[in-house]
Structures are given as structure tokens and as C-alpha cells.
């Protein structure tokens, strides 16, 4: 870091000399973030304690204030946490997240390991495997939805080739949930693959040479060299992956539109419907807060755990 030049008498001007540039560079981002993230964040908290809904919307738009008569304290929270719906949806969200992230990470690492060697067509494979990531998500989902069609969909026709009975993917909750998971797994692999590939390339090849001299098998090499060294690269990606999957609005919402509406929602979709289909703004705001707190607690615990483990290794 730069040394502080010439001790000014005025601590304030000193402060500016030292940090002015940093803050000036940050300012534009900060302004936008304050407007679009911080302000709504706190506003959402206020909403969460109100009973604003479609009927109370008009005076709200006109006056722009939440009248005190709208304030209903903790009622929204109590109602949400005491409903059995919440716990069912919560459980479903956890199942959804675990299956998806686990598949993303394991397939991602698996393909990265396969790709990380000199071989023919390596570049072509890599490019083509990235295609699921390159197509806008909603199109992919709508295409898959078509492919899960009972009569004409490619999936059932393909399974038919092996004599497997047609499955009603889009009309039963279990079918819809599986279809959504398949689609989402398909969508998420390339991202993890690219991250893992970047990580693999930074592993020093001498580790493997040393392991070869010691006569280690391929599996041993993967278990004792590759995976531990990938961990620091994969951890942030996994944290993000969990958050994104937990909060994934698109897949289930679009997959089930008009056929299974409401039946296999995960938390974030449940809230979306409460807000924009049932216009229960206050209730939805409170629900959002709960989802956020769940993720926050999980995130902090997870990172704490990871950094503890890191210390233990050292």
C-alpha cells in the first residue's frame, strides 16, 4: 500500500487523500445499489408488518404512505410459520436444492476431469457441453416442457424405444417435480463444469507426477489430490449454486404453468404467487423475509464451517 505522504494537520483531508479515490470509484455503484437494493430491502421489512393488498393499493399509490391502520405487527409471520403449507413447501425446497446442487457439482467435476487431458476434439466437446448454459433459461424450460409432453414429447418416445411405459410427466406432482429436476440439472451442469475446469488447470502437475512415482491409482489421485485442491475453487460456486437453486423461480413455475399450478411450488414461487397472483403484498413481504433469513443463517453457518476446516488443515 501507498505510504501516507506528508502528515496533514487536518485528519479529514488526510482521510480524503488516502481514501478519496476508492470512494469516488465506488460511488456510482453505491448509489444504484442504495436505490435498488438497500432501499427496497428496508421497505420490504416495513411491508412485512403491514396488511397491504390489492384493495388497499389505491390509497397507498395516492398517498404513498403505509397508513398506521395497515400495520398489523407480527401477524403475517405468525400466520406463515403456523401454517402446515409453509413446512411442506420448505421441505420440498430443501429436497429440490440438495438433489440439484449435488448433481450439478458431481456431474460438473466429472466432466471437467474427463475434459482436462490432451485429447482429440477437446475444444469441440467443451463448447458443445456449454450449450445448455448459452440458451436463455426460459426457452430451455419451454422446450423441455414440450419434450415432456405425454403423447408427442421426445422423452416418452425415447423411453418407448426401450419398451418403457409412457409417463405422465406434466400432470402428476411426482412427474412434474422429476421433470423440473431433470431440466434444472441439465441447465446447471455447464456452470459447475467451467468452474471445475478452471480449478483443475491451476493444479500443479508435479503433484500427479509425485503420486505416479508413489504408485497411486487414478482413483487415489482424484481422491487425495484433485478433490482437495478443487475445494477452494468450488466452495464459492457451491454457495452460489445453493442460493440460486433455492431461489430458482423459473423452472418449476414455467414447467407447471396451467397443469400443476400450485402443487409442487418451492418457497420462492409460493411467495411470487402470493404477491403477483393473489396480490397479498404484506404477506408476501413477510414470507420473503423468512426465506432470506433461512438462507442467511445457512450461508453464515456454511462459511464458518468451511473456514474452520481450512484452519484445521493448516
Amino acid at each position: 500500500m501507498k505510504k501516507i505522504l506528508g502528515q496533514d494537520e487536518n485528519p479529514l483531508s488526510n482521510f480524503f487523500k488516502q481514501y478519496g479515490f476508492s470512494y469516488a470509484m465506488l460511488l456510482p455503484a453505491l448509489i444504484v445499489v442504495a436505490l435498488v437494493i438497500i432501499y427496497p430491502f428496508f421497505y420490504n421489512f416495513r411491508l412485512a408488518f403491514s396488511n397491504l393488498n390489492m384493495y388497499r393499493m389505491r390509497p397507498f399509490i395516492r398517498e404513498g404512505i403505509l397508513e398506521t391502520s395497515f400495520q398489523i405487527g407480527m401477524q403475517n409471520f405468525v400466520r406463515i410459520l403456523s401454517s402446515s403449507d409453509f413446512w411442506i413447501v420448505f421441505l420440498r425446497t430443501i429436497v429440490w436444492t440438495i438433489i440439484n446442487v449435488f448433481s450439478h457439482v458431481s456431474f460438473g467435476i466429472f466432466f471437467a476431469i474427463l475434459l482436462n487431458r490432451d485429447m482429440k476434439f477437446k475444444g469441440i466437446y467443451r463448447t458443445l457441453l456449454m450449450i445448455p448454459w448459452a440458451i436463455p433459461q426460459y426457452i430451455v424450460i419451454l422446450i423441455w416442457r414440450g419434450m415432456f409432453n405425454y403423447r408427442y414429447g421426445a422423452v416418452n418416445n425415447f423411453l418407448g424405444l426401450f419398451g418403457i411405459e409412457r409417463i405422465s410427466w406434466l400432470t402428476t406432482p411426482a412427474g412434474g417435480f422429476s421433470a423440473s429436476i431433470i431440466t434444472n440439472v441439465w441447465l446447471g451442469i455447464p456452470f459447475m463444469m467451467m468452474i471445475a475446469l478452471g480449478g483443475l488447470q491451476s493444479i500443479n502437475p508435479t503433484f500427479y507426477e509425485a503420486a505416479d512415482i508413489d504408485g497411486a491409482s487414478n482413483l487415489q489421485k482424484i481422491k487425495h489430490i484433485t478433490l482437495p485442491l478443487l475445494k477452494p475453487v468450488m466452495t464459492p460456486a457451491i454457495v452460489l449454486g445453493v442460493i440460486w437453486t433455492f431461489n430458482n423461480l423459473n423452472v418449476i413455475y414455467m414447467m407447471t404453468a396451467q397443469t400443476l399450478t400450485d402443487q409442487i411450488d418451492i418457497l420462492v414461487i409460493y411467495v411470487y404467487r402470493a404477491a403477483f397472483e393473489f396480490y397479498r403484498y404484506g404477506y408476501a413481504a413477510a414470507f420473503s423475509v423468512i426465506i432470506f433469513l433461512i438462507l442467511l443463517v445457512w450461508g453464515l453457518t456454511f462459511m464458518e464451517y468451511m473456514s474452520d476446516e481450512e484452519k484445521a488443515v493448516r
Binding site: V33, V36, I37, Y39, P40, F41, Y43, N44, L47, F60, I61, G64, L240, I243, W244, N247, L249, L267, V268, V271, Y272, A275, F276, Y281, A284, A285, F287, S288, V289, I291, F292, L295, L296, G299
Partner: peptide, 22 residues
């Protein structure tokens, strides 16, 4: 910045929607 990633979409969309409406 990392924590903002944990916001469920509705948490920002709903207040922003009400704001944009205003």
C-alpha cells in the same frame, strides 16, 4: 454483495414494483 445474492427475487421485486408503480 454476497449477501444480496441470498435475497429471494420477490424481496426486491415487490417493493420495487410498488415503487415503480408510484
Amino acid at each position: 454483495f454476497l449477501i444480496t445474492q441470498m435475497f429471494p427475487a420477490t424481496m426486491l421485486v415487490l417493493p420495487m414494483f410498488l415503487l415503480l408503480a408510484r
